[in-house]
Write a protein that binds this DNA or RNA. Sequence first.
DNA 1: GACCTGGCTATGGTTATGGCAAGTCAGGTG
DNA 2: CACCTGACTTGCCATAACCATAGCCAGGTC
Lengths: 164, 164
Amino acid sequence: MDAARLDGFLADRDTWRATHCSIGKAMDVIGTRSAVLILREAYYGTTRFDDFAKRVGITEAVAASRLRELTAEGLFERQPYKEPGQRTRYEYVLTAKGRDLLPAVLALMQWGDKYLQGECGPPIGLRDDATGEPVRVEVRSPGREVPLAELRLTPNFAEGDARP
Amino acid sequence: MDAARLDGFLADRDTWRATHCSIGKAMDVIGTRSAVLILREAYYGTTRFDDFAKRVGITEAVAASRLRELTAEGLFERQPYKEPGQRTRYEYVLTAKGRDLLPAVLALMQWGDKYLQGECGPPIGLRDDATGEPVRVEVRSPGREVPLAELRLTPNFAEGDARP
DNA sequence: GACCTGGCTATGGTTATGGCAAGTCAGGTG
DNA sequence: CACCTGACTTGCCATAACCATAGCCAGGTC
């Protein structure tokens, strides 16, 4: 069997449900295609409303509601800026919370590169700008990469504990 | 500015769109909440239809269509099994393609643990079963973790190149 | 041969996500 | 002061994702 190892009461899968699971909560925030692609564009350097809509390929209506949601969730901040001879406008700037989703987004990219591009291979390569070495997303402990079968999950709370 | 560095023609954001982007393609496959949570349960060791529906907390109808899609995409394989005194049934077993999404799913978990759990902290801890060390998802080159601002993106094809 | 059980399918309804097209609004330019 | 432009909003409509309830089916048990 190829699965993680479950510690403590987690081992008996009939007695608990992952109700407060961070994965589910994360999916509530960035579970839509447009949200993830807006993040991608932000990582590529986009900050303005129209650019998000155009580059992601979504309508302005969708861009508006998604940016509103992501800003409300604290992934973006609206910051005023002023180009010379223009009036003050607002741009959407990544916060630390938004930036910290980079591993999740790049992990999707890495997986898509491997399994969904067919003959063509990855359209874009990732490198460490400091060293020139290729960059990968890895599940690891300090010394090494950890495969699924050697991952141990431990509960941080008592069985039946009330949680928000 | 906090963003990746774009090489070659990628640098001029007005001349290209990420149309063949692996992130978008990946979102087409696992862009739904139920798909990701089914993967989570698979990583926890679930293989049977009813268990997926119950443990994820979705209806059997949703579990059926999602498992059908994920199997068609090659993330799961339907394998016959037989318990003594029972007839032959089928279970859903992760393929390498499904297993390789672990970094993406754990990256979501890690992010949710950090930003969406409030006072409670992470409900579940991850450790390397071999060493006991904590496990993290990282964007890294061989020697070190790479922050967004030091990530360089290089195109693997010519500008305007036809791609499927 | 009636019954049970795991593994689904069917029906009906709601909400979310998205597209297209058109309109609004504030403020700077000519 | 008419016009432009970036940043939205509004209206309408299609599809997808989900829920709840109910029903079906194959093959084993009693």
